[in-house]
Simulated assay, not measured.
Amino acid sequence: MLISSFVQRTGEAPVAPTLRRAADTAFGRDLAGALAHRPRTISPKYFYDATGSHLFDRICELPEYYPTRTELRILQQCVPEIARLAGPRAEIVEFGAGSLRKVRLLLQAFEAPARYLPIDISGEHLAEAAVLLRAEFPKLDVQPVVADYTQGLALPASTTGRRIGFFPGSTLGNFTPEEALAFLQGAAEVLRGGALLLGADLVKDPGVLHAAYNDAQGVTAAFNLNLLARANRELGASFDLDQFAHYAFYNAPQQRIEMHLVSRVRQAATVCGERFEFDEGESLHTENSYKFTIDGLRELARRAGFRPGPVWTDPERLFSVHWLHAP
Rank of each mutant, 00 (worst) to 15 (best):
H125P: 08
G11W: 04
E81W: 05
F175L: 15
E287F: 05
R230L: 13
A23H: 02
S53K: 08
E277M: 05
P14F: 05
Y48M: 10
R256K: 15
P308W: 01
P144F: 13
L196V: 08
H37M: 10
V146I: 15
A195H: 12
P17T: 00
P168C: 09
L191Q: 05
A154P: 05
P156C: 09
L132Q: 14
A229R: 14
L62C: 09
A90W: 01
V203C: 13
T150K: 07
F47Y: 15
F276L: 03
G207V: 10
P39S: 03
Y66P: 10
T70L: 11
A180F: 12
D24C: 08
P253N: 03
P177I: 06
V146H: 12
A112F: 03
A326N: 07
G52W: 04
L228G: 06
E178V: 09
A34Y: 02
R275W: 06
G199C: 09
T176G: 13
A229K: 06
E277F: 08
S99F: 04
S170I: 03
F278M: 05
T293N: 10
E124I: 11
S122I: 04
L181F: 12
F239K: 14
A86K: 07
F239P: 14
A304S: 04
I119V: 06
A200V: 13
D24Y: 00
V265Q: 13
A268C: 11
R317A: 10
G161A: 10
V262P: 07
G87N: 08
A248P: 06
R162T: 08
S320Y: 08
R256Y: 12
H322Y: 11
H37G: 02
V203W: 08
H322F: 13
L31S: 04
A23T: 02
P315L: 07
E81H: 12
L227M: 15
R58H: 14
R256T: 07
A180W: 10
L181A: 14
A135S: 14
L75Y: 07
E61R: 15
D242S: 10
F6N: 02
I42R: 02
E71C: 08
P253E: 03
Q185F: 09
V142M: 09
R115T: 00
E94F: 11
V265E: 05
E277P: 05
T293S: 15
A231V: 09
